[in-house]
Design a protein around this nucleic acid. Sequence first.
DNA 1: TTGATAATGGAAATCATTTTCAATAAGGAT
DNA 2: ATCCTTATTGAAAATGATTTCCATTATCAA
Lengths: 153, 153
Amino acid sequence: MRNRGPWWQKRLDDFGFRSTMPRKVIMDILRQTMDHLSAEDIYLKAVNMNPSIGLTTVYRTLDLFYQIGVVQRFDFGDGKARYELISNPNKKEHHHHLVCVKCRNIIDYSDFVHEEQELMDKTEQGLSQKHDFDIFHHIIHFYGICKECKEIE
Amino acid sequence: MRNRGPWWQKRLDDFGFRSTMPRKVIMDILRQTMDHLSAEDIYLKAVNMNPSIGLTTVYRTLDLFYQIGVVQRFDFGDGKARYELISNPNKKEHHHHLVCVKCRNIIDYSDFVHEEQELMDKTEQGLSQKHDFDIFHHIIHFYGICKECKEIE
DNA sequence: TTGATAATGGAAATCATTTTCAATAAGGAT
DNA sequence: ATCCTTATTGAAAATGATTTCCATTATCAA
């Protein structure tokens, strides 16, 4: 039975991967949060839903999801990878991140994205040509101190 | 004897840190390259210059340099931190990175930086206000495939 | 229902980085 | 120049995230 269910299941199928219980559980977890979860965060939630799921599988699954373009993977500088679902595969909804270097909280923002997008497109084109480099995507992170951490001290 | 030598030595001194042999060696290495070296890259070069230098010291020194604002630290997604000297502490010469996801090579670019800077300043201001967030710096990385890797296949 | 094999989980391995701790060396005071 | 305090060092062990190994299990096309 081919190409049934939600888009990410179709994508698994298209790539010849199976639609297994751990993959469904991990996908559910990703869909139910706005946070930027680490592999271990996800593992803890997954075990809660089905104790038989192993940490190894979580790592493997997240990597698989990353490879087939179902999640984005970020590194915010705390030594662990963090994952975010790509909710709509067609229009890559563009947002970037504010990272608090104190509490390590991450704020998504999508303001200024329009002007930004223009400049970024222009920059990408220019860079592609100048360096003969095929650009797939870019990331922008702002680092600083968040409201709460400012107030604390 | 205070505040002698190059700016980074002054900075060490201002922070009350000593100017030791390993620190000098590591600084020399950083000044002699345009590459984005990992701790181990630097360790290998350092041992070449003075076999008594230990890997631990390299990690510690790089972290120290980072803390006092002498180097920048980057993560390009290959699981190891990479370091770049801040050549002039006053005018933070702004450049960003093109990262080849195949060969992991990194190209610095400083084109488009002027327009980019304007937009980034504007964005920083807007975000700071909206989220009451003090922004210190930002990073922009472009990911893609470099010229050489395209030609290979 | 079955059979080939993709996927799994647990344990052990790996890799970058950090911690511990006793020995050493930088640099202000003498 | 020498002494003395203590920051700094190097080696080994510890840590933490992620990966590999491998025997068992589960998915899905036939």
